[in-house]
Amino acid sequence: MAGLTACDRGSHPGNIGKPAAQFVMTDGVETVDLAKLRGKIVVLNLWATWCAPCVQELPSLLALKQKMPGIAVVAVSTDQDDEVYRAFLVKHHVDIPTVRDSDAKINALYGTVQIPETYIIDRNGVLRRKFIGAQDWTGPEITDYLSKL
């Protein structure tokens, strides 16, 4: 899988191996509090409905949650239009916690400059890996990696 081998393009981000930046984000409907997920492996996906690679990888993120229910899959969208965002969630049966962060505060907090980007946070709240671009989240390379954390 090419995406897996290129996940840290160039060099490892400086925050790998350090505590993940904590946040509480609410969009009036959903709230995500990263601290409340301590004790679980977290797959933190930064995305948007208008991003074709984000939409492409969404089914595999949803399937990952079904395949590995002990993992917390969380998504933060940078969509501006709440109505479009909510309609997308319904149309695509998105059943993972997701919040709309129209100001991209979480992207800035994590240093994300392009989407999709996904961060793997271990049970102790330490940032372990960063994936850039769409991934097959149910592929053996990723599920093996996650199961070993």
Rank of each mutant, 00 (worst) to 15 (best):
S102V: 00
A48R: 02
V29F: 11
P19F: 05
A2M: 11
Q80R: 15
I132C: 05
V76Y: 00
L149H: 10
Y119R: 03
T49S: 13
F23C: 11
V90F: 02
Y85N: 02
P97M: 03
N124L: 05
S11E: 15
L44R: 06
V90N: 07
A48T: 04
E83N: 15
K65M: 11
V73A: 05
A2Q: 14
A52E: 12
D103K: 15
T78F: 01
G17K: 06
Y110T: 09
F23V: 12
W137P: 06
N15V: 05
L149F: 13
R9W: 03
A104D: 08
L146S: 11
T118K: 08
L149C: 06
A52T: 13
P116N: 08
A108D: 15
P116I: 02
N124E: 13
S147P: 08
H92P: 00
P13E: 12
T118Y: 13
P69E: 11
V90S: 06
N107M: 14
P13T: 09
S77Y: 00
H92T: 10
Q80D: 10
V99H: 02
K105T: 12
D103N: 12
P140G: 03
P140V: 13
R129H: 12
Y145L: 14
G139V: 03
F23Y: 04
A35K: 14
K105H: 07
W47P: 04
P69I: 10
V73I: 06
Q80F: 06
K36S: 14
V32T: 10
A21R: 10
Y110R: 11
P69V: 04
E83T: 15
Q114K: 08
I120P: 01
V24K: 15
K36D: 14
N107Q: 13
I121P: 03
E117T: 12
S102N: 09
V55E: 09
N107D: 11
T49E: 08
A52N: 07
K130M: 14
D33A: 12
F88W: 10
P116F: 00
P69N: 08
V29M: 04
T78L: 09
V84C: 00
F23P: 10
D95G: 08
A104E: 11
G39V: 07
K18D: 02
N15W: 12
G125D: 06
V76C: 06
G39P: 05
R9D: 11
Y85R: 06
A2S: 15
H12V: 05
T138E: 10
Y145G: 09
H92G: 01
L44H: 07
P13F: 11
L127A: 06
L37D: 03
A35Q: 14
I115Y: 05
V24D: 07
E117M: 13
A72K: 07
L64M: 10
I71S: 05
H92S: 01
P53G: 02
T26S: 15
I16W: 11
L4K: 08
V74N: 04
M68D: 13
G39A: 07
V42C: 09
I16Q: 05
T118D: 05
T5F: 12
N107P: 00
Q80V: 14
Y145D: 03
L34F: 01
L58S: 07
D95A: 10
Q66D: 09
I96K: 03
G3Y: 06
E30G: 00
D144Q: 08
V73D: 02
L4F: 15
E57L: 09
S11Y: 08
M25N: 00
W47H: 04
L146E: 13
M68E: 08
A104T: 09
K36T: 11
T138Y: 06
I41H: 02
